[in-house]
């Protein structure tokens, strides 16, 4: 190869070598992060498949050599997980639907309508974000019980049908929609509801999907409230409470409890996989623009 050609190629190569190194480092870092996050989950899966005697073993086995697949059916039957999962699904569906509907409507009002005390009211909404849920638990419990909602789905869900966070998130998304679009639609005879349905919601879809995922996670993982408002019959008791019961009744069988846990988080994992794209998009939307 002639010398000139060598010279011509060295520069870009050293450049690309630098870039490669950067990429390698970045991936190494991400891999490490993923490992740290996933390791406990992996260990839970492994332990759920071990024999009870192996669990306390030191050092712990990192691979189930003799997988005990029966722990899963055991957990399912022994913990009545079928009923609990159904209850959780109903509770979560009601809360997610409620939060989406109320947040969309309220956010639309804040973004597109003019009414007296708009700023003050919005500020009040924001303030609710700063009150920890625990502060309101006692009063909510009294209210719900006095309404006769103890151990019912309304009791489980009604306190969570509206969310300041959702209103805030969607208001931001709606504010990104140019006013001209609203006015153009108005001239074409579209009222608020039809504009909301055919323009505002489609354009705010990433934010709405993100809110849906957040409220799904929040509702599904609730512990304190369902514990307080559900009774001992299994009519509305949710899976998180069910897991705790499973743990209590199967003290000697941690593998079965862990199998129950894996079953309980499976819907979440599924959800994250399905909505991954929207979630990332909505979380980075502000950063890119």
């Amino acid at each position: 190869m002639p010398a000139t050609e060598v010279q011509a190629t060295t520069r870009p190569r050293s450049h690309s070598r630098k870039a490669t190194l950067k990429t390698v480092l970045r991936y190494a870092f991400l891999t490490l992060g993923a490992f740290i996050v996933l390791f406990p989950v992996y260990m839970a899966v492994v332990n759920s498949l071990l024999e009870p005697s192996q669990i306390a073993h030191q050092p712990p086995p990192f691979f189930p050599t003799n997988p005990q697949w029966h722990t899963y059916p055991d957990a399912w039957k022994g913990g009545s997980l079928g009923i609990y999962l159904r209850n959780s699904a109903i509770q979560t569906a009601i809360i997610v639907a409620g939060q989406l509907v109320t947040s969309i409507l309220a956010a639309y009002a804040f973004a597109f309508l003019d009414f007296p005390f708009k700023r003050a009211i919005f500020f009040a909404f924001l303030m609710t974000l700063m009150i920890p849920f625990e502060v309101t638990v006692a009063t909510n419990l009294t209210t719900v019980t006095s309404l006769g909602w103890f151990n019912t789905f309304p009791g489980l869900t009604v306190p969570f049908l509206a969310t300041g966070f959702g209103v805030f998130l969607l208001r931001q998304a709606f504010l990104q929609i140019p006013r001209d679009l609203k006015e153009a639609a108005q001239l074409d005879g579209y009222g608020h509801m039809r504009f909301l349905w055919s323009v505002a919601i489609p354009l705010a879809r990433p934010a709405i999907a993100a809110l849906g995922v957040f409220s799904f996670l929040g509702a599904w993982n609730q512990y304190l409230w369902p514990l307080l408002v559900t009774g001992n019959n299994n009519a509305v008791r949710t899976v998180q409470i069910g897991l705790k019961q499973l743990l209590n009744t199967q003290l000697d069988q941690i593998n079965v409890s862990l199998a129950g846990t894996i079953i309980a988080i499976a819907p979440l994992v599924l959800l994250l996989i399905v909505f991954q794209k929207q979630l990332v998009r909505s979380l980075t939307a502000g950063a890119v623009k």
Binding site: E183, A184, L187, D188, Y190, G191
Partner: peptide, 8 residues
């Protein structure tokens, strides 16, 4: 606006 029959 919607009853004015104007387009913008």
């Amino acid at each position: 606006p919607k009853d004015r029959d104007v387009a913008m």
